[in-house]
Design a protein around this nucleic acid. Structure first.
Lengths: 200, 200
DNA sequence: TGCAACCGAATGAACGTTCGATTGATGCAC
DNA sequence: GTGCATCAATCGAACGTTCATTCGGTTGCA
């Protein structure tokens, strides 16, 4: 059973990898099942053995990628980090993840902007890329009076919004990734989010 | 000729409107030329009379929508506005435009996240939604030492990024549009962007 | 008369999905 | 330990549908 399961996983992993690659380069459009089969070296019949339909495949791939992202962004937070250090660290991880996983970024962008997402939103529960963990983290900052005393979703929109458009800018060469740029961006968000009625 | 041009415009306008509507509800995927023809009451042959291919139609629609956006966001700036007031005003217009034109927002999101955009980026010149006018405006703030002395693209990413994710949050019901929320968001961006070494 | 605007049935390619066949591992009966 | 039944995993040709695009024809203004 162990061997069989591994084998299974290899097939599925190959299908996921091929789908991600094809969607990244050709888009949702230019990614027919036939090409996924070809690219992954898994027969079409086999893909349909695991996924009832193309939509189910895409959906499963989404969940798979999201869990990878979730594992990544809160990784490496040290006990001795104060809130600001964690604020910077998570944001940086978020940007770094997407830069290192351009195919996932591409896939997410397309997934979230398709009506496909809109239709299955109820089932997806968690919003964009680990945002509810982010939401909890930002709520903590509000509760501790470190961040502005506003609706947490305003801060989420700022925190995530700037990260996403930063990755976008880097991807399309308007901006280049450098330590200084990241530092300055984090300061922009921090200065915007921080509670100015209480110095910390 | 005037009449003919008007007639032409009516057909094209109907095609544009139908395409926008279909892409909004069914996505890039579920928008075949046949349905565009049906929805717009323009024969397929006629559409192909004006646009050599479906890609050309999408491309033309994109340029059309972008010019509408550009006209909109810098509208209503009064002579007596100081920089901060303009900063707020433009951002608000930006958000408001997308909220009032949900179909265009949908279309842009899908357009920019498709490899279609990536491939034609060179021809598009102007980046996302009037960003170069925005870029000039933010550069002005840097030059006047009102905004942080950083690469202007960092500020563009913040300014636009927060606006887009705000619209997204409102669209997907995480956030509701209210005067207070908009005010607080603008303050978040302003506090982040402003040059804190020089009080103004 | 010429030409741009307009039409929609027809075409051929491409797509998602199905299905019957094959393989090999597992478990049960004897 | 041998024979047999079962079943998940695998395969890819074939199917029916849907798509972007073409083209031959009509209309009506200049």
């Amino acid at each position: 059973m162990n061997v069989r399961l591994m084998h299974t996983n290899e097939k599925i992993a190959a299908v996921f990898a091929a789908t991600l690659k094809l969607i990244h380069t050709n888009g949702f459009h230019g990614t027919p099942m036939s090409k996924i089969a070809q690219e992954s070296d898994v027969a079409i019949g086999t893909i349909y053995h695991y996924f009832p339909s193309k939509d189910d495949l895409i959906f499963a791939l989404f969940k798979h990628c999201r869990s990878i992202l979730n594992d990544y962004i809160f990784d490496g937070i040290k006990e001795d980090f104060d809130y600001k250090a964690s604020f910077f660290h998570v944001w940086r991880n978020f940007v770094q993840f997407y830069l290192e996983n351009g195919r996932i970024f591409s896939f997410f962008e397309q997934f979230f902007s398709s009506p496909y997402y809109e239709k299955n939103k109820a089932e997806i529960q968690e919003p964009v890329g680990g945002q509810n963990k982010v939401l909890d983290f930002l709520q903590e900052g509000i509760d501790k009076k470190i961040l502005k005393q506003v609706n947490v979703h305003l801060l989420v929109a700022s925190y995530i919004g700037v990260a996403l458009s930063t990755v976008h800018s880097i991807k399309f060469k308007d901006l280049h990734f450098s330590e200084q740029n990241m530092q300055e961006l984090m300061e922009i968000i921090w200065d915007g989010a921080v509670n100015r009625n209480k110095n910390n």
